[in-house]
Design a protein around this nucleic acid. Structure first.
Length: 538
RNA sequence: GCGCCUGUAGCUCAAUAGGAUAGAGCAUCUGCCUUCUAAGCAGAGGGUUGCGCGUUCAAGUCGCGCCAGGCGCACCA
């Protein structure tokens, strides 16, 4: 496996670094260019001083290590002070043979060691349909969860429902207004209420108004939540838990946690309200938890929610949020820290906004005013896979521009189809081979017949898979996997065009089929991790 | 005013802990279907990485200062 080889190089270098009586940090990284081999290290730069320039040290180090890495490294070269390692190609061949034999299990690496992680994401308020911003968070959160799970983290996906407070009342009032308006009775939507047309559709579903002051709230809430769940489902996103804010009020957990903080001297009264001393933990100012009217702020219930997260013994708590919640992070950090959780294991990932365009027109979004393109509309217009891929192959920090016109027009040129097409071709080649009588049972494969430039390049890329997954886990950069797959697709399409896989030479055909089959494993797995579907044909 | 994010090819974006000559796709131009799917392939052009200083053997990447855009800065959620 790739990471094993890298480890070996690192260990060997660490061993010889002792001879230099200097403790320095160095890296072993994949080379960017063919001529620099598969890995390079900058160790000689780190060890260099006036008497010993990097070029000289590189030579010395090279002499010291070459015998240690026999069987793995074909040759070592020094250039400009760097040391470049060229992997023995048999390593690649062995790798694809293992994948061919064991499938995706062979690609699994135990990075997480069963560590319990909670990932809370989307958590859109049940006051309207999911927007494109939620879509990006949903696509990202789902894929990240899948990758972490594959790497042996014990992942729990959670959605927090804000079903308490003033926003819900406004929602109820807005629905009530729409209901009476439909009856021809004049009734105004509150000024800061919800003006979206979706409430008209929901109002139409009301057959009978029950005599309950919460009737409209509950009706709207249930309808909207149901829609949210439906949209997520058609987007391939699922959750293990749905946690309701209102529960923490009902079961007195908010009261309870505020008492705990009171006992820690972190709560005080001022101007008729209760304040949480978040400044103790680095926030700009203290925050209100109980308002003058004696109701809780959002923060109060959120502290209770995070206590609930901590109680379930998660080692790492990840919150995926939009940039509008950025100012809120110090408060949350203060909350978990005050409850005894290590703030370094509390990770807030901010997914930047997507700006929608229709041609040149920039679309401004506002849930309350009812002006927005919903995730549903986007899925209907562009397709779930294409929409997801648009989100996934950019890193979350980028503020991305999404032109609906372009996405629609180019739907068949969207990169996602390029990947899927490669997958379909791979599958088809294997089917075709079977029709021609190529069965895999009991064969001895001469995989050293895989020796042209393209084949070695493809095998190298397959060998790189683990490194990509490692990087995704380390940086939470799901886009790295999407890019990897795009890259490998390109190589495959090119290879497919240039060489005949199922040909007349039996041994060569078998060797190539091993390559194709291992590629298929990588594709199936990667597309699954990205939550993109595997078409049968295109 | 303060905080976070962003600024890279005409457009949309990459570039692992700072590494060697900054890469893809789209768009543009030129070629390729009698053989495993042309939603494909081969080739070409396209750059002062917003600007300036600094740190370093080495800066798109780190630090400081500007400029531009996005999002926040509630007893809303």
């Amino acid at each position: 496996m790739r990471s094993d080889v890298k480890d070996k190089i690192e260990k060997t270098l660490k061993k010889i670094i002792k001879d230099f009586k200097k403790d320095v940090d160095f890296v072993v990284l994949p080379s960017e260019k063919e001529e620099f081999g598969d890995f390079y290290t900058n160790i000689s730069f780190k060890l260099a001083d006036k008497e010993n320039p990097p070029q000289k040290l590189a030579e010395i180090i090279k002499q010291k290590i070459s015998s240690d890495l026999k069987g793995i490294i074909k040759k070592i070269e020094t250039k400009n002070g760097f040391i470049n390692f060229f992997i023995d190609e048999d390593i690649y061949r062995e790798n694809i043979l293992k994948i061919f034999q064991n499938g995706k299990e062979y690609l699994k690496e135990n990075i997480g060691n069963g560590k319990k992680i909670l990932i809370e994401f989307v958590s859109a308020n049940p006051t309207g349909p999911l927007t494109i911003a939620h879509g990006r968070q949903a696509a990202y959160g789902e894929s990240l969860s899948r990758i972490l799970k594959f790497s042996n983290f014990d992942v729990t996906k959670e959605y927090y429902i804000n079903d308490a407070g003033r926003q819900m009342e406004l929602l109820g009032e807005s629905l009530k207004a729409r209901y009476y308006q439909l009856k021809g009775i004049e009734y105004e939507i509150p000024e800061d209420g919800y003006f979206g047309d979706y409430l008209i559709d929901i109002a139409k579903k009301i057959k009978e108004v029950k005599d309950d002051k919460n009737f409209f709230i509950e009706f709207a809430f249930n309808e909207i939540l149901q829609d949210i769940k439906k949209d997520l489902k058609s987007f391939g996103v699922s959750f293990d838990n749905w946690v309701k804010e209102s529960e923490f009020i009902k079961n007195k957990e908010v009261e309870n946690v505020l008492n705990i903080l009171k006992n820690k001297n972190l709560i005080y009264e001022k101007e008729g309200s209760l304040w949480f001393k978040t400044t103790v933990f680095g926030d700009d100012k203290d925050r209100v938890v109980v308002k003058k009217d004696k109701t809780y702020t959002y923060l109060a219930t959120d502290i209770a929610y995070h206590k609930y997260k901590i109680e379930r013994n998660f080692e790492v708590i990840i919150n995926i949020v939009g940039p509008d919640h950025h100012g809120y992070i110090p408060r949350l950090k203060a909350s978990v820290t005050s409850l005894g959780f290590n703030p370094n294991n509390f990770i807030v990932l901010i997914v930047q906004l997507t700006t929608l365009y229709r041609g040149k027109e920039k679309l401004r979004m506002s849930t309350r005013k009812g002006q927005f393109i919903t995730l549903r509309q986007l899925i209907d217009e562009i397709g779930a896979d294409a929409t997801k891929f648009f989100f996934l192959f950019r890193k979350i920090d980028s503020h991305l521009d999404f032109d609906i016109e372009v996405a629609k027009k180019q739907s068949s040129e969207n990169p996602v189809y390029y990947l899927q097409y490669a997958y379909v071709r791979l599958k088809h080649v294997i089917e075709f081979a079977k029709e021609k009588g190529y069965e895999f049972e009991g064969e001895q494969f001469q995989i050293d017949l895989l020796n042209n430039e393209e084949e070695i390049e493809l095998m190298k890329r397959i060998w790189k898979f683990n490194e990509i997954i490692n990087n995704v886990v380390k940086t939470y950069g799901v886009h790295l996997l999407a890019e990897y797959l795009l890259d490998i697709s390109k190589l495959f399409h090119s290879y497919y065009q240039k060489y005949r896989i199922v040909g007349d030479e039996k041994e060569l055909t078998y060797a190539r089929l091993v390559l194709i089959k291992s590629l298929l494993v990588v594709f199936e797995l990667s597309l699954n991790l990205l939550n993109i579907s595997l078409p049968e044909r295109m």
